[in-house]
């Protein structure tokens, strides 16, 4: 087993680095707290460990160990449940809720990143084992991280649609954004706030695929949540 130490350690390190690379705190403000960071880093570490021991286990003819890998991979599905649950619990405290679709998407992303850590460490350890060159393994692992994170990158709204500012005005008491009648705002002071501080935006899909995507209410809710997170939100809380 002693000969496999370099293989396992290289795989473990690169896999964990891969998980860390994808664990960024951005405008989505999630996971912003150190505990959330720790949970995912620990799970990423375990995933990387499972990935890196697979090749040595096969070579040592420990086939039961490999079947455990499949069993462990199943356990990572729990991560999706964990994320979904925690996001759903804080949903009631959000001024602009994320919506079920967005939560599902975030939960799925967290699950898939653990598989990425596992795959990265698997490939790294395979390269180190077969070519006996740890440096090659490191480069192969980093390449896998970049390739996979490139392919799992999602499109931005600006890629599929034209987002342009639009005029806000009142037709009587009806708030209008360009030609769309929006809502009835009764009080003159409220109207003034809309006119002074409001920002009207029209999103025009570029093609039919984009139209289908934006047709989804979950997408719209997610857009509303992200916009509110970025620009702030003014609303009554009671």
């Amino acid at each position: 087993m002693g000969g496999y130490v370099a293989v396992i350690i290289t795989g473990l390190a690169i896999g964990t680095i891969g998980r860390l690379y994808l664990l960024r705190v951005d405008y989505r403000q999630y996971p912003s707290y150190p505990q959330g960071y720790m949970v995912h880093l620990a799970l990423g570490f375990i995933a990387a460990f499972l990935g890196s021991v697979a090749i040595p286990a096969i070579l040592a003819k420990e086939y039961t160990a490999v079947t455990f890998l499949a069993l462990a991979a199943q356990q990572f599905r729990e991560i999706r449940d964990m994320e979904r649950e925690s996001l759903r619990n804080i949903e009631v405290t959000e001024l602009v809720p994320r919506g079920a679709a967005y939560i599902e998407d975030i939960a799925k992303a967290f699950e898939s990143r653990n598989y990425l850590a596992m795959l990265t460490s698997l490939i790294t350890s395979a390269v180190v084992e077969f070519f006996k060159k740890p440096l090659w393994g490191i480069f192969a692992g980093l390449a896998v991280i970049f390739i996979l994170s490139f392919f799992t990158k999602r499109k931005r709204l600006g890629d599929i649609a034209v987002v342009r500012p639009a005029e806000i005005f009142f037709d009587g008491s009806i708030l209008c954004i360009e030609n769309i009648q929006f809502m009835n705002v009764g009080h003159p002071d409220s109207r003034r706030i809309f006119l002074e501080q409001g920002l009207g935006v029209i999103i025009e899909p570029k093609d039919d695929n984009a139209r289908a995507s934006l047709f989804n209410i979950g997408q719209r809710q997610a857009i509303a949540h992200d916009v509110a997170a970025l620009l702030g939100v003014k609303r009554d809380v009671n």
């Binding site: 009587g172 008491s173 009835n184 705002v185 009764g186 009080h187 002071d189």
Partner: peptide, 25 residues
């Protein structure tokens, strides 16, 4: 009317809407 409407909206956690016939709901 505006003053009453604003007070009521704040008291009742509601929103003022204008029916444009002199009546707020």
């Amino acid at each position: 009317r505006e003053k009453i409407a604003l007070n009521l909206a704040r008291i009742l956690s509601g929103m003022v809407h204008d029916l444009e016939n002199g009546t707020y709901v």
